[in-house]
Design a protein around this nucleic acid. Sequence first.
DNA 1: ATGACGATTTACT
DNA 2: GTAAATCGTCATA
Length: 208
Amino acid sequence: MLVARDLLGKRLVRVLDDGTRLAGIIVEVEAYRGVPDAASHAFGGRRTPRNEVMYGPAGVAYVYFTYGMHHCMNVVCGRVGDPLAVLIRALEPTEGLGKMRELRSAGAGGPGPGSRRPGTGHRADTKLCSGPGKLCQALAIGRSLNGASLLGDSPLLIESSRGRPIVDELILTTPRIGIGYAGDWTARPLRWCIRGNPHVSGPRAGRV
DNA sequence: ATGACGATTTACT
DNA sequence: GTAAATCGTCATA
């Protein structure tokens, strides 16, 4: 929770094998509160090969594949045995935009219908990383990074922001997206985004 | 072995 | 607004 809030404004950096740096400011996150949270992959203490890293030490990535075509990335943040995580839902891209566009328009492993059609490569920069699946595609984040450390010298890491701190007035809190099955937990305000930031996911992009 | 279902994105009506 | 794309994962048997 506190971790989720504090992640806003920090920088997510991806260093590709060839040394290319891709990065963006985190502008939207969601907290998944583990065992009691009906929306969490670890609800009720469920522990499987997929979510195993959630039970490990904090500071690593939990990357999973869903809907047969998208990856999502979380920051594991609980103590060992407590499967807490924060889903990164959107970035404001700052470095490597060209490469991101290339990755996002790549056909292989690409998005849904229409992607096979030629000539649909152009996308607005505000849509480059404006969703959990989109940012993983733009930063080439796949299951090979599941369990990878996000600290220090790593192909995927989080840096403290050198810019202005994100004050509370800039933060919008809402229910989480895409978890209508979670009963009482569906409506809980566990999503944080930077108010009005155009890179936030959804048609209204952080405006309310 | 099998079947149901996504912490989504996109295109189309 | 609705629907399609697409497959790994998990529960059930």
